[in-house]
């Protein structure tokens, strides 16, 4: 069903695919979490978490400011897990695990946003698990901070400390984003072109509130874990193709 001519009607606007994001800024952190617990969290998708190390899965938290893009300006928070492409067997042996990492996708488990247009577009076009929240963030200071709040109650807070500049990579990596909304699992081809990237080991702090997703993250130990790495991206452009359904 992926088609470059695809278009969707969202709130009276015609959104043409691929959707382009011309300027966004990001801060994120990756955590190694118990694979069994992570698998339980995403079991509803029919996908399997990737295990780069035996018994460990990768959970990623990120916050994004969309400053200029086809879905309007908004803030977003993301909870994602690295997953194996559907239908591939679990890799075996250290080399196999390493090789297996090259094909991994990102399963988007939770994606609160703070604007209506992108809420409807994200759910309709790609089945992204967007919901409306207050998402204050500070991406200008040394330490990047973000909170997700519902009616004044904090669900999650993430802060990311500054890292060291990474050399700019050439080309635009292609990733597959997976999502599962209303029982339908979808794959979305996703191209990212980051610049002004800084990264470091550790460097992230997570505060969890009383939201169901916060409970899940607590069950993974995220409020106590040291991050594998955290990074910031000063300028990111992205492109999202149409989604296609994944059959398990």
């Amino acid at each position: 069903m992926t088609s470059t001519a695809e278009a969707h009607a969202i709130q009276g606007e015609r959104v043409v695919l691929p959707v382009r994001i011309r300027d966004a800024a990001v801060a994120s952190a990756m955590f190694a979490v118990p694979a069994a617990a992570a698998q339980a969290v995403i079991a509803y998708s029919g996908l399997d978490v990737a295990e780069p190390l035996p018994g460990r899965a990768i959970c990623s938290l990120a916050f994004v400011r969309y400053a200029d893009g086809d879905l309007g300006p908004y803030h977003e928070f993301a909870v994602a897990f690295l997953v194996r492409p559907p239908g591939t067997p679990p890799p075996s042996g250290p080399l196999g695990r390493l090789r297996g990492l090259s094909g991994v996708g990102a399963f988007i488990h939770w994606l609160p946003v703070n604007q209506e247009f992108t809420l409807e577009a994200g759910r309709t076009i790609w089945g992204f698990p967007k919901e409306l929240a207050d998402i204050p963030m500070d991406l200008a200071g040394r330490v990047k901070r973000c909170a997700v709040r519902f009616g004044g109650r904090t669900a999650v807070e993430l802060s990311v400390r500054p890292g060291v500049p990474l050399p700019g990579g050439a080309g635009a990596p292609k990733v597959d984003a997976y999502s599962c909304l209303d029982g339908v699992t979808r794959r979305t081809p996703w191209t990212v072109s980051p610049s002004e990237v800084r990264s470091r080991p550790g460097g992230a702090q997570v505060v969890l509130g009383d939201h169901p997703v916060a409970e899940e993250l607590r069950s993974l130990g995220l409020d106590r874990a040291r991050a594998l790495s955290s990074s910031t991206i000063g300028h990111l452009s992205m492109q999202f193709e149409g989604a296609e359904e994944v059959r398990g």
Binding site: R65, Y66, A67, D68, G72, P73, Y74, H75, N114, Q115, D134, I135, P136, M137
Partner: peptide, 11 residues
């Protein structure tokens, strides 16, 4: 324009 969009993003 960039200032307006950034403020709009921040609700």
């Amino acid at each position: 324009a960039a200032a307006a969009r950034r403020l709009a993003a921040a609700a």
